[in-house]
C-alpha cells in the first residue's frame, strides 16, 4: 500500500491535533483533521483511513471527568463503526485525552463488550503537571506502535494520568510503555513516574496490538530542538518520539 491515511478526530477542546498531524506527515502519511460532528454526519466515516487518532486536549473541558463525555459520545455515535474498523486491521491511537477517552469508552484494553475495566485518574500529586519523562517499550508487547523502540524522552501534560484497575485486570494488560529512568531502569519513582500510575504503566495496547493508548506526547518530540537539554548537547535521534508514528505508518505500508 502506498498512501497511508490518518484520520485525526477532533472534539471541542481538542489540542495537539496539529502536532499529531505533523508527526504522521513526517513519517510519510497523509492526514485529515475532522470533528466528531463532521464524521458522525458525513458519508466518508472511517472507510478511507487506515489509522484513527484521538489526540490530546480537554474534550468538553474534561467536565464530568477526563475523556468521559467524548467517550459517551463515541459510544453513542461511532461505536458501530469502531469494531469493524479494528477488525479489518485499522490502527487506533489515543494520546493523553484520547487515551482517557478510549479507556472510558471500553475500547482499551478491550474487548469492547466488557465495557470500562481500567481508568486514568487524578495524579498522585493532585496537580496537572507538565514535565519530560523517559518511556521504555516492553519488548514482549504486541503493540505495533512501539515495536523496536527502546527508550524515548517525551513530555507529559496532564492532571489525570494515573492508571488504576483491579489487580487481576492489571495483570492481564498488555503494557506497551513504562515510565522509567533515563537508562530504562524500572521502578524510577516520582517524578519519573509523573502520576503514580500502577506499575509505572504509561501506555497499553489491546489483544490485537493495533489499538494503543498512552498518556505522554511523543508528537511533541519530533525534532531535536524540542529536547529540553539540547543546549547541553544531550538531544539524540533515539530519544525522539517520532518512532511511534513511523512504526504505525510502516506497519500499514507492509500489509
Amino acid at each position: 500500500m502506498n498512501s497511508v491515511n490518518v484520520l485525526i478526530l477532533r472534539a471541542p477542546g481538542t489540542n495537539r491535533d496539529e502536532e499529531t498531524a505533523a508527526a504522521f506527515q513526517q513519517a510519510g502519511a497523509s492526514t485529515r483533521l475532522a470533528t466528531i460532528n463532521e464524521v458522525a454526519t458525513a458519508s466518508f466515516r472511517f472507510s478511507d483511513s487506515q489509522v484513527l487518532v484521538f489526540p490530546g486536549g480537554f474534550a468538553y473541558g474534561d467536565d464530568l471527568g477526563a475523556g468521559r463525555v467524548l467517550a459517551s459520545e463515541l459510544n453513542l455515535k461511532l461505536r458501530a463503526d469502531m469494531q469493524p474498523f479494528i477488525d479489518r486491521g485499522g490502527l487506533v491511537l489515543g494520546i493523553c485525552n484520547g487515551f482517557q477517552t478510549l479507556v472510558k469508552a471500553g475500547i482499551l484494553p478491550g474487548p469492547m463488550s466488557k465495557g470500562q475495566t481500567v481508568t486514568l485518574t487524578n495524579n498522585d500529586s493532585g496537580r496537572f503537571e507538565c514535565r519530560w519523562v523517559y518511556l521504555t517499550a516492553n519488548p514482549s508487547s504486541k503493540c505495533v506502535f512501539t515495536a523496536g523502540i527502546r527508550t524515548i524522552y517525551v513530555p507529559v501534560a496532564h492532571g489525570e494520568g494515573k492508571l488504576v484497575a483491579d489487580p487481576a485486570v492489571v495483570a492481564s494488560l498488555d503494557v506497551a510503555l513504562y515510565y522509567t529512568g533515563a537508562e530504562g531502569n524500572r521502578n524510577p519513582g516520582y517524578p519519573h513516574n509523573p502520576n503514580g500510575s500502577t506499575k509505572d504503566i504509561a501506555g497499553i495496547t489491546d489483544s490485537t496490538g493495533r489499538v494503543f493508548g498512552l498518556m505522554p506526547h511523543p508528537e511533541d518530540h519530533i525534532r531535536e530542538s524540542q529536547h529540553p537539554r539540547w543546549t547541553r548537547g544531550e538531544a539524540t535521534k533515539e530519544s525522539l518520539g517520532s518512532s511511534i508514528y513511523q512504526n504505525a505508518v510502516n506497519w500499514v505500508k507492509k500489509i
Partner: peptide
C-alpha cells in the same frame, strides 16, 4: 506554578521556562 502550565503544547518550544541538567 510553571509545571502546572502546559508549556509544551503546540510543540514549538526551543528554550523552555525551566532549563538545565535536571530541568
Amino acid at each position: 506554578v510553571i509545571r502546572q502550565y502546559d508549556h509544551e503544547v503546540q510543540g514549538a518550544s526551543v528554550l523552555k521556562p525551566l532549563v538545565g541538567e535536571t530541568e
